[in-house]
Design a protein around this nucleic acid. Structure first.
Ligand SMILES: NC(=O)c1ccc[n+]([C@@H]2O[C@H](COP(=O)([O-])OP(=O)(O)OC[C@H]3O[C@@H](n4cnc5c(N)ncnc54)[C@H](O)[C@@H]3O)[C@@H](O)[C@H]2O)c1
Ligand SMILES: NC(=O)c1ccc[n+]([C@@H]2O[C@H](COP(=O)([O-])OP(=O)(O)OC[C@H]3O[C@@H](n4cnc5c(N)ncnc54)[C@H](O)[C@@H]3O)[C@@H](O)[C@H]2O)c1
Lengths: 203, 203
DNA sequence: TTTTTATTGTATTTATTTTCACAAAAAATT
DNA sequence: AATTTTTTGTGAAAATAAATACAATAAAAA
């Protein structure tokens, strides 16, 4: 399977914005304010909430704590374990961000690399050889992996990850992975993102 | 303005796949093969081509060189200069990939960071203090910037970039940037990507 | 208390994207 | 030469997503 309903992305963005508003001491918010912060229209906000049965008060807006509880009900607030395959430029950047991911209950519990020299330095996350993938994923109840290896080996690693029980993949390699229908894949292709932006600039 | 028509992303993916087929010595391709490689249906491929006036030969498929020429006509094949703001984990990973971006005519010509210690090491791309943003962007005809600074300062840097003439931004900071209508912004929020994948896994 | 104002919630409309259906053309086969 | 097969190209239909319009309601003002 490929991707992510588009309203889900917006709900996650709302969550982020709401946490920031809360930090600033705001308790109540109108769809207009939240839309402004999240880069969408006020109607879009209300419609999204409406679809998920989230209610505000007419003329009173939404209570931020309530909203956050409702959003946490949708997304769950249990711990999620993640691994990173390929501890090169991107992989390293990601595991070094782990401290911040942990605040969102996203825990990078291991990295994997074929290069033994990567297995020494740990950046706070243990790095294992690829032979350990299956064992580590099974022992740590890992559902999700980030692929940051060269595209030539990405499909191979993807297959290993799926055999080990991975259900979702965030893939940085510039290739479309072939996966069974029930596996969720999301791709980030930076070159294409840049080319897309430049295309739009020149439109 | 926000984002990128969805067919554009597919056309870029086709381009990538076609280059790989070409490298393998393939000259001619059917919509079915290209769709398979690009992760879309054959009809989607043909429809996308149809919209952009790209023709194949009935029962003969498409000539890869011709397709690549047509796609290059759409996207242009001139050199594109890019800068990166914030040479931390992500910024560093990106400028170290410059050699590969250059093959796609995407040239990272400079990085910027507020931290003087980042300005020494260059990773092949010169790193300047933020005060130089305007000068460097103007002197190098830079249209596009990558923002990889903490979210608290992202809007500020964004404003500086736009004043300096930047027209498109790829933003890694987890915040929605406020920009004039004509500026193109594309956001990559890794936490949200991961949370979105996990939501879909558990669906 | 009544009226006005501000805001939510949603049904309806409009726009966009994807899929379906199938004719047209060219190649291959008989 | 006629028939069958394969594949493109695209109009039409279906599905999805976003914007519009407006009723309902609660708060504020008169
Ligand atoms: N860095 C970027 O800005 C950038 C930009 C666009 C795309 N990408 C893509 O992201 C991916 C990672 O990029 P990067 O810059 O981090 O690459 P990198 O070369 O720095 O790192 C790749 C890592 O994968 C490891 N590796 C290689 N083969 C392996 C295998 N079989 N099993 C396990 N590990 C293996 C290498 O040892 C290395 O540490 C690549 O596919 C690249 O094309 C990166
Ligand atoms: N690394 C990741 O995997 C990851 C994941 C999710 C989100 N992000 C986001 O991407 C952005 C960059 O992340 P990172 O991990 O590279 O952060 P980082 O802290 O490693 O790097 C940030 C860099 O920005 C520089 N900086 C700070 N203020 C500046 C200013 N005013 N002007 C210029 N430079 C300034 C710092 O000196 C530092 O070099 C952040 O917004 C972060 O939230 C990163």
């Amino acid at each position: 399977m490929s991707l992510v309903r588009s309203d889900i992305g917006r709900l996650l963005q709302y969550k982020l914005c709401l946490l920031r508003f809360k930090e600033l001491g705001v308790n109540t918010i109108f769809s207009y304010n939240l839309g402004e912060a999240a880069g969408v229209t006020a109607v879009q906000v209300r419609k999204d909430f409406s679809v998920y049965g989230i209610k505000g008060r007419k003329r009173g807006g939404y209570n931020i704590d309530t909203l956050l509880i409702e959003l946490n009900n949708i997304f769950g607030n249990s711990r999620k374990n993640i691994v990173v395959v390929g501890i090169g430029n991107i992989g390293k950047a990601i595991i070094q961000y782990n401290e911040r991911f942990v605040k969102k209950n996203l825990h990078i519990v291991a990295g994997f690399d074929i290069d033994p020299s990567k297995q020494n330095k740990s950046y706070g996350v243990p790095i294992y050889p690829v032979e350990k993938i299956s064992e580590v994923i099974k022992n740590n109840n890992v559902s999700t992996a980030i692929i940051a290896v060269p595209f030539q080996v990405a499909q191979e690693l993807c297959n290993i990850l799926i055999s080990a029980g991975i259900k979702g993949i965030l893939n940085f390699a510039p290739i479309i992975l072939k996966v069974p229908d029930e596996i969720i894949v999301d791709n980030i292709n930076l070159s294409n993102k840049l080319e897309g932006i430049i295309y739009n600039i020149n439109l």
